[in-house]
Structure formats: C-alpha cells, structure tokens
Amino acid sequence: MSTDPPSPLAHPARRGVGGPGSDVEISMSADPEMHVLARLTASAYASRFDFDLDDIEDLRLAVGELCIACSAGATAASRLTLRFAYHLSSLRVECTVTAVASGVDDDAGNPLLGGLSPGELSRRILAELVDAYRVEPAAAGVRRGSIEMRRRAAGS
C-alpha cells in the first residue's frame, strides 16, 4: 500500500482554517515609520482567512491604533512584536513593545485636542472596530496589548 505524502494544501496555514500552524509573528523597531508594515501584515493575514474587504480595512486601522497605543513611551531601543493567530473564526493580534519609558500618560487631555486625549481617540476607534481590545499599562519597561476580531458570517 502506497502512502502519498500529505498534500501541502492540508496544512492549516494553507487551508485558511487557522490553528497554531498558521500563526505569524513579526518584530520590528517601534519607530512609527515601521507601523505601516504592521498594517500591511494585518491586511495580508486577514485576507488568508476570507475576511471581507470592509473587515480587512477595519483590522488594518485597528492594528495601527494598537501599535500606537502600545508604543506610548517607546524609545529608540524599543522593539515592537506582533503575533497574529486565527482560530475558530476569530483573529487575534497580540502586540508587545519593549524598552518603553515609564510614566508616559497618553490619557492626559491635550489642550490642542480640546481636552481630548490621543488615547481616547484610539480607544473610541478600537471599541467600534474590533470585538475586544486591551492595552495594559507598561510594566518593567514592557507594554502589551491585544485585539480580537471575529469573521462575520457571509451575508451578515
């Protein structure tokens, strides 16, 4: 009895069904100029799992906001790492930024924004665009955050 090698299309990362084999991790400088790479990766990753174009646009914006929020207090030495995972129709993005300065408060009302804080704008966007989000205070020079977005059923 012959045993054919498993088809590469059987791999979860290729089937578009997710699972640990489809996780993606990227790491870069936390320089704002690099955030575009995070957004591009988010778009490409979501497209593998049949998110529709509106959801991909929402995810792209949400990942950008997550990077901004987690990068508060980032320094020239800071590294930004994103981990993308898809499982059971839910896409999760975890963000970690290292070497962040402590005591940076993006919630301080900015008079130039009419008292609105930059963090408040980010939170309003994240709250509307994704199903769950979290940005932790920096601890020991590291700030972590995450977002989750469920894929809508076709036609919903």
């Binding site: 906001e65 901004i68 900015n110 924004l113 009419g114 609105l116 930059p118 704008l121 980010s122 966007i125």
Partner: peptide, 17 residues
C-alpha cells in the same frame, strides 16, 4: 487612503486653533 487617530488629532487641533 488611510487616516488614524494621529491624523484626526491634527484636524481637531487645527479647528481649536
């Protein structure tokens, strides 16, 4: 083609000014 909270902040700041 893309507008995030930072860009919105610039627009709000301009209006306030």
């Amino acid at each position: 083609t893309f507008l995030d909270s930072t860009g919105l902040g610039v627009l709000v700041a301009t209006l306030k000014r």
